[in-house]
């Protein structure tokens, strides 16, 4: 896979992750700014670095599981590794325009 194809696949994954909604805020994880990094570690394997809005988020397991299931739905991906990090901490500045609009800002 050349560089352009890799960039296209990362964009596809990011777009596909918009299916994963935070049920409390009703905003997807991408627009909420929870996805920090998507990198292809091998041809069919992806590593996603992400965070949550707060360390004690009750939806912790659900959202992480959702991100993994969602990525594995893509035929190009056979293996997904999700790394949850607290640093850098999430802040509203990480939200997209669409995310801020959805939350009434």
């Amino acid at each position: 896979m050349n560089l352009q194809e890799q960039i296209a696949l990362v964009d596809k994954i990011r777009e596909h992750l918009k299916k994963v909604m935070d049920p409390e805020l009703n905003i997807n994880v991408v627009d909420l700014g929870l996805i920090y990094d998507i990198s292809l570690v091998e041809e069919n394997a992806v590593e996603i670095v992400m965070t949550l809005t707060t360390p004690g988020c009750p939806l912790h397991d659900s959202i992480i599981g959702g991100v993994k299931h969602c990525v594995l739905e893509l035929e190009e991906i056979d293996h997904a590794e999700i790394q949850l990090v607290w640093e850098p901490a999430w802040s509203p500045e990480k939200m997209t325009e669409a995310g801020l609009k959805a939350i009434g800002r």
Partner: peptide, 15 residues
């Protein structure tokens, strides 16, 4: 959590 947490990301779930 009981009903939808395992299908989040696979299909549409209610808010």
């Amino acid at each position: 959590t009981h009903k939808y947490s395992h299908v989040i990301g696979k299909k549409d779930v209610p808010a």
